[in-house]
């Protein structure tokens, strides 16, 4: 038998494909699927989560470590502002407690399920008027009213289930799924933040008769930029814009700005 040398043609075992096109198609389809699935499941999860009774919510909330951090504030301007707001807010199923974490330098505040508003020391140092304090407290009351924590809990469970189904791996497809899921979750979260802002503006208007000074909070340098289009919170510009539009729409006016400074005795204990 004779050997006849011939060259094997290219492209049989490694056919030339449009790599970029295929990549774009697959990535796009995957992201689209996750976004659609998560939106649908997120809405469903939220609808179910808010059915939890206030008693259960309070019981869960009391067990969270953040619920008991810091010191409880029972007197002082901060407490007085909260009480004034509560008088004009819809009734909750529980008492609302104010706590301050004096050692924390971040400019932030949050509500814990079951009726606690926790304010970080950095926020009290950054704000310069009682109007801002009222806005921040009212915003947190808004989260409580809308039961945003339960919604976030429901969404978190859905996200975890989705990720577990796809396969926990550090490979790229899993990361893309997780990233997309988180991005959609953050859109929900941003919507909640804007809703809480609206609640806060209305509550401040009802309590004080005007909304002067509430947007000053977003201009405080210590706040820096607290949000981004992929983040949990919308950008400050967007939040201020919403508040201004709301005020225009309802004809709310500005009013006197009462200066505020944190009393040294607040964190003395």
């Amino acid at each position: 038998m004779k050997y006849v040398p011939k060259e094997i043609p290219e492209g049989i075992n490694a056919p030339r494909t449009n790599v970029v096109g295929e990549f774009a198609l697959l990535a796009g389809t995957l992201v689209a699927l996750v976004v659609v699935a998560f939106y649908a499941l997120g809405v469903a999860a939220e609808t179910l989560a808010v059915r939890l009774s206030p008693e259960w919510e309070a019981a869960i909330g009391a067990r969270l470590p953040t619920a008991n951090a810091g010191v409880e504030v029972r007197a002082g301007r901060e407490r007085e502002v909260l009480v004034a707001l509560l008088a004009h807010a819809p009734r909750q199923g529980y008492d609302v407690q104010l706590r301050v974490r004096c050692g924390e330098k971040d400019v932030n505040a949050f509500a814990v399920p079951g009726g606690r508003v926790v304010v970080l020391g950095g926020l009290l140092d950054a704000v310069q008027s009682e109007n801002e304090v009222a806005f921040v407290l009212a915003h947190e009351l808004g989260h409580m009213q809308n039961r945003d924590h339960l919604r976030a809990l429901g969404r978190g469970l859905v996200l975890m289930t989705l990720v577990a189904a796809v396969g926990t791996g550090s490979d790229a497809a899993s990361r893309l799924v997780v990233g997309s899921g988180v991005a959609v979750s953050h859109r929900f979260s941003q919507r909640q933040e804007l809703a809480a802002d609206r609640f806060a503006a209305e509550l401040v208007q009802r309590t004080y008769g005007h909304v002067g000074g509430i947007t000053d909070f977003f201009g405080r340098p210590a706040l820096r930029e607290g949000g981004s289009w992929l983040g949990t919170h919308p950008g400050s510009k967007r939040r201020v814009l919403q508040l201004e539009r709301l005020a225009d729409q309802h004809g709310w006016g500005t009013g006197p700005v009462t200066p505020y400074a944190r009393a040294p005795s607040l964190c003395a204990e």
């Binding site: 490694a14 056919p15 494909t17 790599v19 697959l26 990535a27 995957l30 796809v166 790229a172």
Partner: peptide, 23 residues
């Protein structure tokens, strides 16, 4: 790039052309 493309293809099934040229 191929690693991500192969990972995506693994998700949907079918021929993994990224690995074919590598092999």
């Amino acid at each position: 790039f191929k690693y991500v493309a192969a990972s995506l293809r693994n998700f949907f099934g079918g021929r993994v052309s990224a690995y074919e040229s590598l092999l």
